[in-house]
């Protein structure tokens, strides 16, 4: 149980949380009264696991969206802290300002120097306002690009964590070239001379997510989602009713399992029972294992092969037919 995190529980996970609460109460009373409750606790724990398995084995796409957006879900900084042995945060795009919606810096993964960066959401209202809910402005994407070219110059692999509702749709963002900033990153990431690994850890929201997502290997956490537009946005346009977001979530096939089946990602990182937000350390460990696996393969490739395979990977994306 994560004690450091705040935020409400989702309706569908409340039965599990309540059961766990009962277990804690029982243990506390046993400690005071000296009653042996071991059997009962063991029974309830088994029940909690069964309940959890049951609920999580038949999640609707919309419930995945809710999990991906969970207030307790590990953020990029939560993961960085638990995965890397060193982290030197870096700031600014050198042109306009530092965008707090994107964090990044020099890190070490099991001793290997790497560059890590990602979208950063807040944990409560105040920090979410500061982080703009993980919605970057052009200067955020340009900071990301500056860091990535830095890594390229010093021949360090790049790891990105994706967790954003999307690029920020505001006046300043448009004036400063939101579209150009995203587009520029796509082209630049496609041509990087160092290995790149992207992990969608929460919300993979549209172009704002992809701006950190062109990579040699792309993974998604089990309950992460990835789509071309938010379910609300899709519902507002196609259903003319944002409240139809659960329908849009279903129609867009935005789960990790869908993306993997369509070979648009390279793998799914399993989450701890009950979701990544229930155990940040376990989630981080799973991500770390995947990163080590991917990098072990990628660092063995020479630059030319790496870049050729990356281009081939993207050229293969898409489903179409050709009439003669």
């Amino acid at each position: 149980m994560p004690e450091t995190t705040k935020g409400p529980w989702l309706d569908f996970e409340r039965p599990i949380v309540e059961l766990e609460e009962r277990i804690r109460t029982l243990e506390a009373s046993a400690a005071v009264g000296g009653v042996d409750v071991a059997d009962e606790v063991a029974h309830l724990r088994r029940k909690a696991v069964r309940l959890s398995d049951d609920i999580f084995s038949k999640l609707e796409p919309w419930q995945r969206v809710q999990l991906a957006r969970h207030g307790r879900r590990p953020t990029t900084l939560d993961l960085i802290e638990r995965i890397f042995t060193q982290f030197v945060p870096l700031h600014g795009d050198r042109q306009f300002r530092d965008d707090p919606a994107i964090v990044g810096g020099l890190a070490r993964l099991e001793g290997r120097p790497v560059l890590v960066l990602g979208h950063q959401k807040g944990r409560d209202t105040r920090s979410n306002v500061q982080r703009n809910f993980g919605m970057a402005h052009p200067e955020g994407y340009r900071k990301a690009l500056r860091l990535m070219t830095l890594a390229e110059r010093f021949e360090r692999p790049i790891i990105t964590f994706i967790d954003t509702p999307g690029a920020y749709p505001g006046l300043g963002a448009e004036e400063r070239g939101q579209a150009e900033a995203i587009a520029h990153n796509l082209r630049a990431m496609a041509a990087l001379r160092v290995p790149t690994v992207a992990v969608v850890t929460g919300e993979g929201g549209s172009g704002g997510a992809l701006a950190l997502g062109v990579a040699d290997r792309i993974y998604m956490l089990e309950n992460a989602v990835y789509s071309v537009i938010s379910p609300e946005g899709c519902a507002a346009i196609l259903w003319r009713d944002a409240a139809k977001a659960p329908d849009a979530a279903k129609a867009m096939r935005l789960t990790a399992a869908d993306a993997f089946r369509h070979t648009l990602i390279d793998g799914i990182v399993g989450e701890p029972v009950g979701g990544a937000h229930r155990d940040h350390a376990a989630a981080a460990l799973a991500v770390k294992a995947q990163l080590l696996d991917a990098l072990a393969e990628l660092v063995a490739l020479d630059q030319k092969t790496l870049r050729e395979r990356r281009l081939a990977k993207y050229l293969a994306m898409g489903e179409w037919t050709e009439r003669r």
Binding site: A183, Y226, E319
Partner: peptide, 11 residues
Amino acid sequence: ESLFSLMQMAK
């Protein structure tokens, strides 16, 4: 085409 469409940007 959701994610397929998004990936055309990268392609």
